[in-house]
């Protein structure tokens, strides 16, 4: 196999999309060709960077409501009283369907309301002037402060050199449990980073959520859920999340 041909097949090989003979052929070439081997490594790094760093945008919550409302309009107009004549099984299957849909959301990573709740927490923390229970730029002061207040120990990372100075932490409530809120600053904006154990709940896929000028970005790592919320630029938040992810074990 020539390098030219190997190059053409390299992505498909990496993606597991080549048939067996094709894969074997590429592998044989890779054993003898350092240059193509290096190309493959680079490609893996690139796709890793895309998966890690390009955000999956999440639909704002109100879109679902709007779509459902418009579906209602577009189905045949039905006089309200006809509903009364629907056989019992129809409403039962309706309830079952609603339950099934709800289960899909609870079982899947995104939980409805989590982003909205985090944004509300964020806004409240700013309005009430209750941003911090412990004000410190020292991670070794902020982290121990949570000891005894939570049944887990959040990792507090120092990102000052990257332009996200730590300014403190506080206890907050998210997803019906007390959570650590670590507060960072980006120029004149604040970022709240919520950290709590993934526990029995589903872990979070990496998603970016935009609503009313605030963005939330959430992910899971090593059994912990992370959710960053702020009004900073999208790219700043994405960068921030990448840094936190890179600095936590």
């Amino acid at each position: 196999m020539t390098c030219e041909r190997a190059e053409r097949l390299l992505d498909a090989y990496m993606d597991g999309e080549l048939d067996l003979p094709g894969s074997l052929e590429v592998e044989e070439h890779l054993r003898d060709c350092d240059r193509c081997q290096q190309r493959l490594e680079e490609r893996r790094a690139l796709v890793g960077a895309i998966r890690e760093k390009a955000p999956c945008f999440e639909a704002p919550g109100y879109i679902m409501t709007r779509i459902r409302a418009r579906l209602g309009e577009s189905s045949a107009s039905k006089p309200g009283w006809l509903r009364l004549f629907q056989p019992a099984w129809a409403s039962l299957s309706g309830a079952l369907a609603a339950f099934a849909i709800a289960m899909l959301y609870f079982l899947g990573a995104p939980r409805p309301g989590l982003n909205e709740e985090a944004v509300a927490d964020h806004v409240r923390s700013l309005q009430a002037g209750h941003l911090m229970d412990v004000a410190s730029t020292d991670q070794h002061t902020v982290k121990p402060w949570f000891a005894g207040k939570l049944d887990y120990s959040p990792q507090v990372v120092d990102l000052a050199s990257a332009g996200f100075p730590l300014i403190g932490g506080r206890l907050d409530v998210l997803d019906r449990r007390p959570v650590a809120a670590i507060v960072y600053q980006r120029r004149k904006h604040y970022i709240n980073l919520f950290i709590w154990p993934a526990g029995e709940g589903a872990s979070l896929s990496r998603t970016l959520h935009e609503e009313h000028g605030y963005r939330t970005l959430r992910w899971s790592k090593a059994g912990m859920n992370y959710l960053a919320v702020s009004d900073v630029q999208e790219a700043d938040l994405v960068n921030f999340a990448g840094l936190v992810k890179a600095h936590t074990d």
Partner: peptide
């Protein structure tokens, strides 16, 4: 007709609303 409409809407929502985030992305 009304009943099939409602049933179809249910099936539609079950089959496709869970993919809203993928669609939006």
């Amino acid at each position: 007709g009304n009943r099939t409409d409602a049933a179809m809407r249910q099936r539609f929502e079950e089959a496709l609303l869970p993919h809203l985030d993928a669609a939006y992305n």
